[in-house]
Computed example of a mutant assay.
Amino acid sequence: MEYVAVILPSLVVGLLFWFAMKAIFNADKAERQAEARAQAEADSLPVRPSDPETK
């Protein structure tokens, strides 16, 4: 039982770190997908000659 008491804190901290990193990477992936969708939508919009950006 002593071995469990010694290793358990490290396992718990490791699991917390793993869940935190997984959440960060999932949020980053979702943000990159949303940015790609927004960029694709912006690229598909027609450019009007009267837009000041085209001058």
Rank of each mutant, 00 (worst) to 15 (best):
S50D: 14
S10V: 13
S10K: 07
P52V: 10
E31W: 11
Q39T: 13
D51W: 04
M21H: 10
T54G: 02
V13N: 08
L16S: 01
K22W: 10
G14H: 00
V13I: 15
N26I: 13
G14L: 05
K22P: 11
L15M: 09
L15N: 05
K29P: 06
V12C: 02
A36F: 09
A20Y: 02
Q33T: 15
V6T: 09
A5N: 12
R37T: 14
N26S: 13
Q33W: 12
S10N: 09
E35D: 13
A42T: 06
A20D: 07
W18D: 04
F19K: 02
F19D: 05
A20V: 13
A36G: 02
N26Q: 15
D28R: 12
A42R: 05
A42G: 03
P52D: 07
E53P: 01
L16N: 01
A30R: 04
I24N: 06
Y3D: 05
A30N: 01
R37I: 15
P52K: 03
D51N: 05
A27P: 03
V6H: 09
M1L: 14
E35K: 13
V12G: 04
M21R: 15
L45Y: 07
A27M: 09
N26K: 12
F17D: 03
A30D: 10
R48T: 15
A20F: 06
L11K: 09
K29E: 15
S44M: 04
S50F: 08
L16K: 06
V4M: 01
V4H: 01
E53M: 10
I7S: 04
F25M: 10
E2M: 02
A34Y: 02
A38H: 03
L16H: 03
S10Q: 10
M21I: 14
A23M: 13
K29F: 15
A27T: 13
F19A: 09
E31T: 15
A27V: 12
P46S: 01
K29H: 08
N26W: 09
Q33R: 06
Q39C: 05
Y3I: 05
M21K: 12
A27I: 09
R32L: 12
M1F: 11
L16Y: 01
K55F: 14
P49W: 01
N26M: 10
L8C: 02
S44C: 06
A27C: 08
Q33P: 01
K22D: 15
V47E: 12
D43K: 00
K55I: 11
T54K: 07
I24M: 05
P49T: 00
S44L: 04
Q33C: 06
V13K: 04
E35H: 10
I24K: 01
E35Q: 14
A20G: 02
K29Q: 14
A42Q: 01
F19E: 04
V6L: 13
V4T: 03
F17N: 06
K22Q: 11
Q33Y: 09
A30L: 09
D51Q: 04
P52W: 13
A36L: 12
V13W: 04
I7A: 07
F25N: 08
T54L: 10
M21W: 12
Q39N: 12
E31N: 13
E41D: 11
V6M: 10
P49Q: 03
W18N: 12
L45W: 09
K29Y: 11
P49I: 00
E35V: 14
S50W: 11
F17S: 00
A20S: 07
D43I: 00
